[in-house]
Amino acid sequence: MSRQTSRLDAKKVNSELLTLTYGALVSQMLKETENPEDVNKQLERIGYNMGVRLIEDFLARTTLYLNMQPTVTSWSSSGDEFSLVWDQCALSDWVEMPNNGLRYCALIPGAIRGALQMVQLEVQCWFVQDQLKGDAVTELRVKYIKRLEDAVPAGED
């Protein structure tokens, strides 16, 4: 058992596998839904559903998922808003975007929103800059909305 779990802990896959799988998902969704705006929404929703599950895995063993370390910058003066900035993301390697309003990485803000909701934090999350749209870096803005008081487990208040 202990050997099996240590194998699980060290389980790393080539990021290209993830990149390709994600790319296949997005392009398939674009094929099935004509409207890129709908694809954005769906990706956000998928991300949300992944986030509410992944948070448990994160809390159980504090892993990193995309092997990237974004910088945290641009704190608002009230301290309830910040930006995550990165210049390389495994999801968007090799991608050349059609100019149609698609937010290719919309899965990430969804996952952040879902995961934080499970720890009783409601946030908003959106892209300010996107390398795929010609910006120098990708910038994701995270804004604290409120603490979900009715969902706070006993002992956490």
């Binding site: 509410v52 599950r53 159980a60 063993r61």
Partner: peptide
């Protein structure tokens, strides 16, 4: 308990057919 939590996050939550 910590180990059981890990099993739960792996085998229950990563199972796409398990609903929260």
């Amino acid at each position: 308990l910590k180990r059981i939590y890990e099993l739960y996050s792996d085998y229950a939550l990563k199972n796409p057919f398990y609903s929260l």
